[in-house]
Design a protein around this nucleic acid. Structure first.
Lengths: 236, 236
DNA sequence: GAATTTAGAACTGTATACAGTTACGAATAC
DNA sequence: GTATTCGTAACTGTATACAGTTCTAAATTC
């Protein structure tokens, strides 16, 4: 059993704050203040921040300190393109390596999660369920590095999705979950048929479909984050 | 101008030590001893080590400390497969986005580096020249994330290559550089022709060719690292 | 002689203090 | 009124000390 240390707790919390914009994009991070908030000293906090830099959540300048990464549409596009790179190769490898037995278990898993999609579940749960599907395939590829990278990308993209979905809840384009589910089924069918070309093509199209949703979500995020900021500046 | 801090220096040095096996794979890292060697205290050293963990060079266990990553053939294979994933997508995007002018400059660059390949240059230089070619394409893809990941992968694969080439120097299979150069030319031609399928296929084959060289290199590395260790143990 | 327990050494985890750097604003010169 | 300089405050960079944990090996028991 892996005993979780203080640093792990801090990383989790700081990552959370970066994701939810509790730390504003581009803003400098005040180490003393944040360490006090988190109930630890600066030493473990800096260790956590260093790790988040390497994970791509923060940036760092010598003598200046740590900064939240600016949130721009270009970056989101880059992340989605990287997801395509990773996942297309993952599904190709899974096609070569997954046993029929593993694919049968995978199908059972997919059938079991289906009810969650159809009944109007929490959107955040839908996002996580979707992530799980994709991670499952990465696991079937038997490549630890691809899996690790996909987990990292998921973490960095998740907030955009959740923001996008948050607004979608009020004005929902409601068939999206079913579409997603259909794509997932088609990918699985291609895997079972050992049709690598179909599997990769479907995967690529499936991810790229979320593209515009994502850039749209970034725009919404900007308005949510910066407008209140500007308003408060008006007051001062 | 970015002033380089002490931590940057330490990271560079520690990464170097991990790459060259000055720190043995799987071995625990003694922070006090290493910090003394590097002429710094444990605080900046631990910051550096944490970053190297996130970059994939080291592992970490709470309460136990930092460890060099074990060097096994499976991991090398994973890294090469990840390279394929990244680079195939990069060359595809470059095919869409690079202007004719950029490709002309690229061709000039390739022609200019050619002499270095034909004249028997240092193998380590050849490795770096090859890396540069691939990074160039990643840059043409205009995707910062793919570029970042490729740089990371290069760093982690480099030591295997250099070991493989070191032994190749004594018993050289001499046409390898020319083959590599040919593949590079074919990739460029495909880019100019905007033939994404040819570009990606050539890129994939080019990287996969290095595959067995790499696993062979790992075997050699094992013999070089562990045999002397065992011998010295005999003496004690 | 083998297994188990226990004491101590070594090492990691964290807090704190201080040195060095950067940023900000007031004061002065033009 | 604007620009420049200087001083101070805030923050980052690093060392060190100490607390808590893990590992090692010796001693004891069976």
């Amino acid at each position: 059993m892996q005993k979780t240390s203080n640093v792990d707790r801090i990383i989790e919390k700081a990552r959370e704050m970066a994701i939810t914009f509790e730390l504003k994009p581009g803003a400098r991070i005040n180490e003393s203040a944040l360490s006090k908030d988190l109930g630890a000293s600066r030493t473990p906090l800096r260790e956590a921040l260093n790790r988040l830099v390497a994970e791509g959540y923060l940036t760092f300048q010598t003598g200046k300190g740590f900064f939240c990464r600016a949130l721009d549409p270009k970056r989101i596009m880059d992340l989605y393109e990287t997801r395509v790179a990773i996942e297309v190769e993952a599904v190709r490898l899974a096609c070569l390596r997954a046993t029929d037995g593993e694919l049968a278990v995978f199908r059972a898993y997919l059938n079991q999660t289906e009810p969650a999609y159809s009944q109007g579940a929490e959107v955040s749960e839908l996002v996580l369920a979707d992530e799980d599907f994709h991670l499952y395939i990465a696991r079937l590829s038997q490549n630890d590095e691809l899996l690790r990278l996909l987990e990292n990308l998921n973490g960095r993209i998740r907030y955009v999705r959740s923001i996008g979905l948050k607004t979608m809840q009020s004005a929902p384009p409601p068939q999206a979950p079913e579409l997603s589910l259909t794509a997932h089924r088609r990918i699985l069918d291609a895997l079972v048929a050992r049709d690598a070309d179909a599997a990769t093509a479907t995967m690529r199209a499936h991810i790229e479909r979320r593209w515009e949703e994502a850039t749209e979500a970034v725009r919404i995020a900007y308005s949510q984050i910066y407008v209140p900021e500007d308003l408060s500046r008006e007051v001062l």
